[in-house]
Design a protein around this nucleic acid. Structure first.
Lengths: 107, 107
DNA sequence: CTCATATACTTTGTATAACAAGGTATGAGT
DNA sequence: ACTCATACCTTGTTATACAAAGTATATGAG
């Protein structure tokens, strides 16, 4: 049973920035990585991910670059920019604040 | 600095159901309660709350009832229905699953 | 050889949520 | 009188996650 779609809203940016802190990744890899790391709980859809990546790129937090391959289609990797590194930290902190505030009420 | 609006999405239902587990509350009271309990971090707007309450009522999770007052305007209290009690537990569990899954990636 | 599947990126349209901004009305304090 | 806090509500805007579809290549099953 996947998580309600509305719950995910807003969490995606934090999630993507945090993932890319560990180094560049390409879209399809992110989809599978999130799915496996969350044991299927977070089932990120491609129609969600790719627009999100473009959004983050437009915001100047990540930048994409094509990596050619002999076999299969080329991959578009994304890495954090300098501003992206700062945004990742800021947004992670904000996320944790939300969780703390929520827990204060859910307790 | 309040939390980014998009981060809140989906969290509101969980929050409201959890609050009403402690007994009936009226709208304006909820606004102030959330604000104070989260130390201003969660600044719930009335334009957000009232539609949300109507939505939860329509879903059959809460029910509203007017409480007349001699002084001041009448208050519309909301209480959990039987189905609402179940929904509150289910949604709290879902929220905690999301937090756990996110932490697995943010760590 | 053909077909299905997995990989890999993309776009269009839909549902819905949070909010800004406004409205209505009452009672208390200055 | 006027402002403020209380108390409820609605309309319009913006943004997001997703379904559904499309494009293209490589691989394996039949």
């Amino acid at each position: 049973m996947p998580i309600d779609r509305e719950l995910m809203k807003g969490s995606l940016d934090v999630l993507l920035l945090a993932l890319l802190e560990n180094g560049p990744m390409y879209g399809y890899q992110i989809v599978k990585e999130v799915r496996s790391r969350s044991e299927g709980l977070l089932d990120l859809k491609e129609g969600t991910l790719y627009p999100a990546l473009h959004r983050l790129e437009k915001a100047g937090w990540i930048e994409g670059f094509w990596q050619a391959r002999a076999d299969g289609a080329d991959r578009r990797y994304y890495r954090l920019t300098a501003r992206g590194v700062a945004a990742a930290q800021q947004k992670r902190a904000e996320w944790r604040q939300l969780v703390a505030a929520m827990e204060g009420i859910l307790r």
